[in-house]
Computed example of a mutant assay.
Amino acid sequence: MNCSHFDAGECRSCTLMGVPYASQVIDLGREVGDVLRRHVADQLWSPPFVGEEAGFRNKAKLVVGGTKGAPTFGILDAEQRGVALPECGLYEPALDEGLGRLLPVVADLGLVPYDVPARQGELKHLIVTGSPDGELMVRFVLRSPGQLPRIRRGLDELRAAVPGLRVVSANIQPEHKAVLEGEDEIVLGEHETLPMRVDDITFHLRPRSFFQTNTIVAAGLYRQASAWISEIDPESVLDLYCGVGGFALNAALAPGRARRVDGVEVAPEAVASARRSALELGVDVGFEVGDARVLTRVDHELVVVNPPRRGIGADLCAAIESAAPDHVVYSSCNAASLARDLDALPGYRVTRARLFDMFPQTRHHEVIVLLERG
């Protein structure tokens, strides 16, 4: 993959740009393997799962800079000024095409870009997500609700310019700090969700729902977990940090006996999305709003955990150790926190492991391991 912005020194987000992709995967596997060496023997690793090295990303997070008459969409430089990077080789083709149609219309709305050094202005970010079917969700991150009428007046122009535009919302982030979005989300059209079709499941993303940014590799991750679950064939599965239900719904559909499947997620919007997908699939999955970190009761044969970078932590490890489910499937985006959690799960041993290159051109990674009691 080549990038003119990287070559010009405008963007260095892709830290492995210029390294042959095959070498990236080999090096990443070695790095992750070294971090987990005390827990995962070399022979337990399956070959890495890889997708495309470019054109894979389903989400664009664009910082808005410049001026009202000439906004920029991209990143901030060292002086916190906007750098225009409207295109990126990482974006899926449909997302890239949609941005090309969308950004000129957004520029014409007359929103004042947020000036970080001066702490003035309104439009902070534009977050755009693309689906496998070419539809888009566009989120305007604003400092206040004052500019909502401008966006509402421009909805018809936005839809005319971008035929696949499905969801438009405004997120209100009044604080001046390095937090991308705020608590308040206002949907500005008739549709509240973006359908994301992954293999046999259609997920329904609401604006604040988390979803993996690499759809092809996410599908591979779910298929791997489903294959392990089908092989073990437990009577019950609990998916913690379940998000929109990726692992839980795949567990419910995995071949084998009819099984009880439950999911726990702290974000109510994600739970609502997961319940909708389950209803459409005709599967009985018990999705509940809750904080997995303070879970004290586990009565399932197999537990799936997919935590944020910090891992599941000592308390949840202790709860799992006490409940002693037969198996744990742990999907991690941080091998270091995974290693710490494995230290806190002495009653389990890793029997399978696989690396998923979810974030090509970087050293970020996703790794999934299967743990067995005893």
Rank of each mutant, 00 (worst) to 15 (best):
H5A: 15
H5K: 06
E10P: 01
T15I: 15
T15E: 15
L16N: 07
S23L: 14
G29P: 08
R30E: 15
V35H: 04
R37F: 11
R37S: 13
V40W: 01
Q43T: 12
P48G: 03
V50C: 11
E52D: 13
A54V: 10
R57M: 11
A60S: 09
K61Y: 10
K68I: 14
T72R: 02
G74V: 03
Q80K: 15
Q80M: 15
A84T: 02
P86K: 05
E92N: 07
E92M: 13
A94Y: 00
D96K: 13
E97K: 11
G98H: 05
P104M: 03
V105W: 05
V105Q: 07
A118R: 15
A118K: 14
K124F: 08
R139M: 15
F140E: 02
L142N: 09
L148C: 09
L148M: 14
P149Q: 05
R153A: 15
G154W: 09
L158G: 09
R159G: 03
A160M: 04
G164L: 08
G164T: 08
V168W: 00
V168N: 06
P174Q: 00
K177W: 10
V179Y: 03
E183T: 11
E183A: 14
D184Y: 05
I186K: 10
I186F: 04
L194K: 07
L194I: 12
V198Q: 03
V198F: 04
H204W: 13
F210P: 01
I216N: 00
A218C: 14
Y222S: 06
Q224S: 08
S226T: 05
S226C: 05
S230Q: 06
E231H: 12
E231F: 12
L240W: 03
G243H: 06
G245C: 03
G246T: 01
P255V: 06
R260W: 02
V264W: 00
A267C: 11
A274R: 00
R275F: 00
L279G: 03
L279V: 12
G282A: 10
G286A: 10
D291G: 08
R293I: 08
V294T: 13
R297A: 14
D299K: 13
N306H: 10
I312G: 04
A314K: 14
D315M: 09
E321G: 15
E321S: 14
A323N: 01
D326S: 14
H327I: 04
S331L: 12
R340E: 11
P346T: 10
G347E: 05
R349A: 13
V350F: 01
F356R: 02
F359L: 10
T362K: 01
